[in-house]
């Protein structure tokens, strides 16, 4: 067999392994139906609480409402908050996903066995996370329907397609972060506190509930270095203010380039931690 044919066979095998890993996770999810209720409840309940809070802050005062509109760039309060929290929940899934999957295998004692297989490391890290794409799409759909049904926010097809393009451009950055967390799991085992801290940083700086324009200058600098800031801001712009992709080009270029950098960093970090774990025999330790 030539080396080209060998590579093709290996790629086909990896794709099959990828599909198998995703199917396994999907089956596991189906065994716990209460999770389905959670995926319906939280995308509605969490943003709704903040919409009610915003109504409390507006308090029927026209001055307060117009202050929000001038800072946020839109008067669509419910849409603004629902999109912020939808992005937050998707980011949470991705941050937890690959690392948690590795940690679960570690605790179950099956991680070493998986690393012995000839499957690519990409399959090991992202195979289980693929099943979560279904949940992410479901969550965005629930958010869209809730915005339309409860708050009368209508999203046109063209705007939704532009939003999908923004999400696709954000994928390398977010999955790169997920892979970085997976590397940290391999190195240190427990990452709960770290994930909580990073989620906290994202919540405070990236504008889930507010426009970053109200942050002090130093904090705005931090916000602009974080990929979720661009994802959230751009989703709001295409869906709520009708911005075109061309309008967002500088933002999207930054988001994509941060994504490439994070992915490269994740590859280096993962290879180095895997080597460390294999040499030290710590792959299954927790």
């Amino acid at each position: 067999m030539s080396s080209g044919e060998g590579r093709l066979v290996s790629l086909a095998g990896d794709l099959r392994a990828f599909g198998a890993a995703a199917r396994k996770e999907w089956r596991l999810l189906r065994r716990y139906p209460s999770l389905f209720i959670g995926f319906l409840f939280w995308p509605i309940a969490l943003p709704t609480a903040y919409v009610l809070q915003a109504q409390g802050y507006a308090g029927g005062s026209a001055a307060a409402t117009s202050a929000f509109a001038s800072r946020a760039g839109t008067g669509e309060i419910a849409g603004f908050l629902f999109l912020g929290w939808a992005a937050y929940m998707w980011i949470s899934m991705i941050l937890w996903g690959p690392g948690t999957a590795l940690r679960t295998e570690q605790v179950r004692g099956s991680l070493e066995a998986i690393f012995i297989t000839p499957a690519s490391r990409l399959v090991v890290i992202f195979g289980p996370a693929v099943s979560q794409v279904v949940w992410a799409l479901w969550m965005f759909a629930v958010v869209g329907v809730a915005m339309w049904l409860f708050f009368g926010v209508e999203l046109g097809l063209a705007a939704v397609l532009r939003a999908l393009a923004v999400i696709l451009i954000a994928v390398p950055a977010l999955y790169g972060l997920g892979a970085l967390f997976a590397a940290v799991v391999l190195r240190f085992g427990e990452v709960h506190a770290l994930v909580q801290s990073v989620r906290g940083v994202f919540t405070v700086f990236c504008g889930m509930t507010f426009p970053i324009i109200i942050l002090p200058e130093w904090a705005r600098g931090v916000a602009l270095a974080l990929p979720p800031t661009y994802l959230i801001g751009d989703l709001r712009r295409v869906l709520l203010t009708g911005a075109s992709l061309a309008d967002l080009l500088p933002d999207l270029a930054i988001l994509f380039s941060i994504g490439v950098e994070i992915c490269l960093l994740a590859v280096v970090a993962f290879r180095s931690t895997e080597r460390h774990a294999r040499r030290g025999g710590s792959l299954a330790q927790y």
Binding site: G59, S61, A64, F68, L81
Partner: peptide
């Protein structure tokens, strides 16, 4: 923090006018 920052978005001259009118 997210709640305070959302509140700051509605502030007029540094005051939470809407909240004051409500409670």
């Amino acid at each position: 923090l997210p709640s305070l920052l959302l509140g700051a978005t509605f502030a007029v001259g540094g005051h939470a006018l809407g909240l004051a009118s409500l409670v």
